[in-house]
Amino acid sequence: MLKDITLGQFFPGRSFLHRIDPRTKIIAALLYIVAVFLCDSIMSFIILLAATLALIALSGVPVKIIVKGLKPLIFILAFTTIYNVFFYKGDHILVHWKFITIYLEGVVFALIMGLRIICLLTGSSVLMTYTTSPIMLTDGIERLLSPLNKIKAPVHEFAMMMSIALRFIPTLVEETDKIMCAQKARGADFSSGGLIKRARALIPVLVPLFISAFRRASDLAVAMECRCYRGGSGRTRMTKTHFGARDVILFTATVILGTVIVLSNIYFPIWMI
């Protein structure tokens, strides 16, 4: 069902990564993403894979859940792989049949791209969304961006909007589920017929969903004003996070990862070909 969408979903726990300050994790995730794009040799990919596996181990999130979270990626992966296998030009011909030519370089490149995409998503979601609750995440973003307050950017309002949006995604998913069930009970059919018939079948779901989303938004606004919400100035936080030894370890480790990858590119610039 809809609730099985796990990509970008918080997985509660008390692991090493769970207990790190969200700011550190955001910065580490950015560094990690840079590191992924720096990978340019076999050695560097091996190091990247090892680092990603280590991250998964440190997060305590079951591999099954992570693999399930990658499912929506299948299309993108399939597309890039096929594209690269058939259209990448190189020197070593593997298959030549009529107008189709497949080069060894193409296959290697396709593998690399696939690996890159998988690592990119796994690593950044393990660092951020799986191990950081949405509230903590936006809190972290708000504090990282707080210098922008100096130039009068509405950082707090932006972060508040984001946390509200994130907070209501599961609610809306649940609500969609419920409305779909209710309409199924009235004989609605969402899974048969052509494209147009299926799109039309969604009307009984979308109309109540929109109405309830607007009702919720207005209720929430009233409730917030009733509790004297006046924007960010002078607001304190319920939970204050602090940098600790763990944060230093994670940060240093990611910096080292980046450095090692750059060095391995320089000193072992080998591909399989």
Binding site: I179, A182, Q183, A185, P204, P208
Partner: peptide, 8 residues
């Protein structure tokens, strides 16, 4: 008939 069916 679901709970709070008026929302459907």
């Amino acid at each position: 008939v679901f709970q709070y069916p008026e929302y459907q």
